[in-house]
Design a protein around this nucleic acid. Structure first.
Length: 781
DNA sequence: GATTATATGGTTTTT
DNA sequence: CCATATAATC
């Protein structure tokens, strides 16, 4: 009996030892499902001599895939694991599609469009069809198309489906089917696939090309799928096709953690699995090794409010643990402070490290208040999600050059850079070129590379020719130079790097650094040795690099794995992770559950599962916070506490929790909160007496203002020698006198050069934004 | 045609 | 509040 089996409990062992035939593992939160998956693969390889080349494991994130490979490698003690096909659905399918692209009429170097690219194509198509983009919002249209693809509905079928047509007609978007068709055609013409195409086209490849199907059926003798509850119909059908020959399909999932229905995922796949395969072995992992009893009991209570669960009860032999602590504050800023203070306190008192904490929230926008509070206390943190590195403008612009070099049909890339850096090819010229291209059924590149034929003005023509020549020059280097060297040439000869370098503003500096970072990543890619089997299409080229990076997420980018930082992320992003201490923020009606998701029972239940996922991330301590009011759309909005709070039995809750912050009355009320604000604006040391609580700002209305009158201006009598100073060189930190508001400290200067706006914190009248062109200010010091 | 000021409108979650 | 789209101005 191999040693690695000793570490497993009975059901886990059962799951690992089951060799052939379909198996479904229902794995509760923290029940060791990754361990089972890795051990199972290890066991297949070492005990049954299954070749790594014949095993396919699909995960939800690249990070999970890398982790899995690493663990297997560690148990096996050799490098065989690198021959496994492990990756996300999207990355594995992209890799195969790259090899088989010719069969479906695509170039091997097809571009993968991210969501932004795809929406931009939608917009282009809608405009070209002379439709109103208010009526056909790119977002809506794209989502609709995406949903169709995830359900394996092509544009023709979409157009012929009576129900879908009715739906669209009722929603005032009768032309959606036509847009879908035009969109698909345009993507094809651009040699591009969007994220959904990676599934949909792969499905079509398998379905319409029997020789390809049988090739991969023979190859993948064993298939394992992680996070099965989050697969969509397209993924389901693909697995069904791939696994049809051997039926050695192992799926692992937890219906209670299904949180991606907006992406087309359906729990139906779990139920359907047992119908589609004969003699499915079902194993349930119900022992939780992660959390305290209290946390688990609350989690079980919460999820029991959902109907139609797969029967299972999580239990643990861990200690009882502390009660779940509720933090209630007045505003979102206070919430941030309380959480940050609590982290600080716990670090001191319980010797936690920064990396032991995670702050989770429903929406990305919530990160701001936590971020500010952590920064004030000097606690290192990192935000995951939001805009990924590769979505930043400067990075995307640079990548657009590389994309165009690899695939000149990529119209999105071409339009992005044809006039970046500015070279005098404006909107009018581009529109003209696009028109010619559409009229003559040419690609945009074909038009501009023969620009002389299309009657551009001579100056414009010269610019276009210059651009085309330089791209062609880059292309000629494509096979001589590696990706990194080529990228350096691009950066240099286009002047992009220089331009960013010369921009000495803070943002400019950051942009420059980002481009440097991009070059680093290309260099790293170039220098990383080839995987043994990756030779399929010469996978070291620029094309392979580009296809890989669009599929990377922020979490994958984590180079310094064990940084001692507090992690901030959405609950979705936290799936599969665990932390000693978890904070879940914004437990308020309209936010969590989100107002968008309370219209049907299904939606609400998914929100509840999301909450379940959030609290089951915690190992030892769990804090839940909510705020009476928070800024949304720049305005203060009052919210009720979340219904999920009421669903937790009182006996497990500690409502009286008060950390350091509350004790010194800094965060429990409006007045105290503003004192805190003032302290951290540098007023703490000033000689000013503690002033009445009026840190109201012009646009940030006091939560009291709805009850009491708006803050009164405390009259100020200008000093006798009041003469308005020249404020053109006014700087942060200077003290000024305002005729009406009195003395104050300049905390910030922004606005444009012609219309500078100073943010001034007045001693008696709080923070005001003052337009320097109009205000009369006397500079005191 | 480029740069800059103003309007608008949008927030759920992500490969 | 934020980012992007449009208008205005040089």
């Amino acid at each position: 009996m191999p040693k690695y089996l000793d570490e497993l409990n009975e059901p886990q062992k059962e799951a690992v030892l089951h060799k052939d035939g379909p198996i479904m593992i229902i794995a509760g939160a923290g029940s060791g499902k990754t361990k089972v998956l890795t051990t199972r693969i290890t066991h297949l390889m070492s005990a049954h001599n299954i070749d790594a080349f014949n095993i396919l494991a699909l995960t939800f994130t690249n990070k999970a895939a890398a982790e899995m490979k690493e663990r297997i490698e560690r148990i096996l003690g050799n490098s065989e694991a690198r021959n496994l096909y492990v990756g996300t659905f999207h990355s594995v399918f992209a890799r195969i599609l790259r090899a088989e692209a010719g069969k479906i009429g695509y170039p091997n170097n097809f571009t993968i469009y991210d969501t932004d690219d795809a929406k931009s194509v939608v917009k282009t198509v809608v405009n070209e069809m002379s439709l109103d983009d208010k009526q056909y919002k790119p977002n809506t249209v794209y989502n609709r198309i995406s949903a169709a693809k995830n359900a394996l509905i092509g544009s023709a079928e979409y157009a012929n489906d009576g129900i879908l047509q009715q739906e669209d007609a009722r929603a005032n978007r009768p032309m959606l089917a036509q847009i879908y068709e035009a969109y698909a055609r345009r993507c094809f013409k651009n040699g591009a696939m969007d994220f959904d195409d990676l599934l949909y086209k792969f499905y079509l490849l398998l379905k319409n090309h029997p020789e390809a199907l049988s090739k991969y059926q023979r190859k993948f003798k064993y298939i394992l799928i992680d996070e099965y509850q989050d697969t969509n119909p397209a993924q389901y059908e693909i697995i069904k096709l791939l696994g049809a020959m051997h039926e050695n399909v192992c799926v692992v999932g937890d219906d209670a953690q299904s949180i991606y229905s907006f992406r087309g995922a359906t729990i139906e796949n779990i139920l359907q699995f047992q119908k589609d395969y004969d003699d499915v072995k079902v194993v349930k992992l119900e022992q939780n090794y992660r959390s305290t009893q209290n946390i688990l009991k609350v989690a079980n209570e919460i999820i029991s409010n959902n109907k139609g669960q797969i029967e299972k009860t999580l239990f643990t032999t861990n200690e009882e643990g502390e009660k779940i602590k509720l933090i209630r504050t007045m505003t979102d800023n206070d919430e941030g402070k309380m959480v940050a203070d609590t982290i600080k306190e716990n670090k001191l008192r319980n010797h936690f490290f920064n990396k032991d904490f995670a702050i989770l929230y429903r929406t990305n926008a919530q990160s701001r208040s936590f971020e500010e509070a952590l920064r004030r206390l000097g606690i290192a943190y990192r935000i995951y999600g939001g805009m990924s590195f590769y979505q930043r403008k400067e990075v995307k612009d640079f990548i657009a050059y590389l994309r165009l070099i690899v695939n000149t049909k990529d119209e999105e890339a071409l339009k992005r850079i044809i006039n970046y850096p500015a070279r005098g090819i404006g909107k009018t010229s581009i529109d003209k070129a696009v028109l010619y291209a559409n009229e003559n059924n040419l690609t945009l590149w074909e038009v501009i590379s023969n620009a002389a034929l299309y009657g551009f003005r001579s100056g414009t023509l010269e610019s276009i020719d210059g651009f085309v020549t330089s791209i062609k020059m880059f292309q000629s280097e494509l096979n001589k130079k590696n990706a990194y060297d080529l990228a350096v040439i691009v950066g240099k000869s286009t002047g992009i790097v220089k331009e960013l370098f010369n921009d000495k503003t803070t943002e400019g500096l950051a942009r420059y650094e980002n481009v440097q970072e991009l070059l680093n990543s290309i260099k790293e890619f170039t220098e990383t040795p080839l995987n043994e089997e990756d030779g399929e299409v010469g996978d070291k080229g620029l094309g392979a690099y580009l296809q890989q990076i669009v599929l990377l997420t922020d979490a994958d980018n984590e180079d310094k794995e064990n940084q001692d930082v507090v992690k901030l992320m959405t609950i979705h992003a936290a799936k599969g992770l665990e932390f000693p201490v978890i904070f879940v923020g914004g437990l308020e009606e309209t936010l969590f559950p989100n107002a968008m998701s309370i219209n049907t029972r299904e939606e609400l239940e998914e929100e509840r599962r999301l909450f379940y996922v959030a609290i089951t991330r915690a190992k030892q301590k769990l804090f839940l916070s909510f705020s009476n009011a928070r800024y949304r759309f720049g305005q203060l909005q009052q919210n009720e506490p979340s219904r999920f709070i009421d669903e937790m039995p009182e006996q497990y809750l500690d409502r009286s929790y008060a950390g350091v912050a509350a004790k010194n009355n800094a965060s429990t009320g409006w007045a105290a909160g503003s004192a805190y604000e003032r302290m951290h604006r540098g007023f703490g040391r000033s000689a000013e007496p503690p002033v009445h609580s009026t840190t109201h700002t012009e646009n940030k209305k006091s939560i009291l203002s709805s009850i009491a009158a708006r803050p009164q201006v405390k009259e100020h009598t200008p000093s006798e020698n009041f003469v308005a100073s020249d404020t053109s060189k006014l700087q942060q930190g200077q003290k000024v006198e305002h005729q009406k508001f009195g003395y104050g400290l300049v905390s910030k200067i922004d606005g444009s050069a012609h219309n500078p706006v100073a943010t001034i914190v007045f001693d008696n009248n709080g923070e005001k934004k003052i337009m320097l062109n109009y205000a009369k200010l006397r500079i005191v010091e």
